[in-house]
Amino acid sequence: MTVDTSSADDSTVGAGAEHLAVAAAVAAGESVLTRRFGSTISLVAPEDLAGSGPATVLRARVASSPFALPRTLVIKHYPDPAEPGKPDPYAQEAVSYQLFTALTAGERMCPELLAHDARHRVLVLDDLGRAPTLEDKLNARDSRAAERALLSWARSLGRLHATTANREADFNALLRRLGGPVKCADLTLPTCERVAELLEEKLDVPTPDTIRERLSRAAEMSRAVAYRAFSPVDLSPDNNLVTSAGVRFLDFERGLVRTALVDAAYLRIPFASSPGALALPAGMSEAMIAAWRAEVVAVWPSFADDDLLAEQLTTSEMLLVWLRTFEMLPTLDLSRPATPVSREAALVTWWRELAKHAGYARLTDVAEHATRVAAALGARLGPHSDLAYYPAFR
């Protein structure tokens, strides 16, 4: 199988398996476009965009088409079938884009879905161009540009939540057509119990019953019907394009509907799910929360109450820190000093931030326990365990 790349000066498509994967994606894209528009549409000059998930992601130029299609398109092809009993990333991404494509252009916080096909497991998306990602902005040396990008990201996240706040039934109906509803992987009581065991085993920090009870209530709150909206789930900075119209979200392979407060907690400990997460300067998180809040308060008026919002955010932040601890603590090396860009430094910094925010929200028991955990981690990881800033803020 070959791909027509004659119009490209320097093809970025490799040989062997990568070449075949790109060729298969191009063929799938052409097939779904031809069926969608009823006339042959040819794609040329494929550029492999090196997606990090299970899909082959590429940009291709429309060589010939009787329709007013964009000059370039993005193709996402999932060559492998879904694993039995597990969420299907193709289905979740296809349904996520369908949900947003039904909205107006001003409400759409992602590329437009132009065509998709479940049999070929392919999506064809509008190409947003070569805009920098949020990660690019954070790793550059322009702090003002990074601040603007972060505030734009927070506003876009709030707008995404506000426009999908009443669309869970639509999302689930679409998902059932492609294989059935998929629920969010909640932080369950057994997970919390395992974290409590790890804290005692590795750090000699017991977990009081009041904290266990608060975690149980918090987990129940995260499953409640209040404040539910669509979430991309993967909020890593490389999955966000900084465009002239604002930040746009990419990669909905894990997209689903859950409480928006889980996403909002990432404004407190930014990009905590990203392996290379670093810190932001003082005041940045508060400014991001204000930007997000301005977009959602019309949908959820209770968030106009400062005390209520602070408690809700801190509770979600606590759940997020416990989940990251569950995933990270067993793999960390606590026997040597941490470097400022390490995962060890990230974890101790997140516990310190939780203690600070819990104090502000007058959740005294949470603040005291988080302070003890942070101190125990800091004692083992040494004086340089504070997480470094992203390069834009150094």
Rank of each mutant, 00 (worst) to 15 (best):
P89M: 07
Y360C: 07
G51P: 06
P337A: 14
L198P: 04
T339I: 04
C184V: 07
P70D: 09
D117V: 00
T72I: 10
G38E: 08
M221I: 02
V247C: 12
M284Y: 04
A82F: 01
S7T: 15
E197C: 07
L58V: 03
V57S: 07
W292M: 07
L261P: 01
F37N: 01
L280N: 00
K137N: 05
A388S: 13
S231E: 02
L308Q: 12
R61A: 15
F230A: 11
E107N: 14
R36D: 01
C184K: 10
S335K: 13
A245E: 13
R228G: 09
A102C: 04
A294W: 02
F37S: 01
A264S: 04
D142P: 06
P181C: 10
L241H: 09
T104I: 06
S96G: 15
S273D: 12
V13K: 11
P232T: 07
D126Y: 02
G106E: 15
S143I: 08
V366C: 07
A25Q: 04
A94S: 14
E47N: 11
V74Y: 11
D263L: 00
T243R: 09
T40R: 15
S39W: 05
V74A: 02
S96P: 01
L151C: 07
L99D: 05
F303M: 10
Y97Q: 05
A169D: 14
L125R: 11
F171H: 12
D4Q: 12
E197S: 13
F67I: 13
T104D: 15
G129Q: 10
R336A: 15
L33G: 08
A23Y: 01
V22D: 03
H369N: 03
Y227V: 01
R167H: 12
P87R: 08
V373K: 02
G53D: 13
V57W: 06
W350F: 13
R343C: 04
A149Y: 08
A28N: 03
Q92A: 00
Q312C: 06
G255L: 06
R148V: 04
L160N: 09
E47G: 05
Y266P: 02
R217T: 13
A290Y: 03
R121D: 05
D251K: 09
R380C: 15
E220A: 14
D306G: 02
L134N: 06
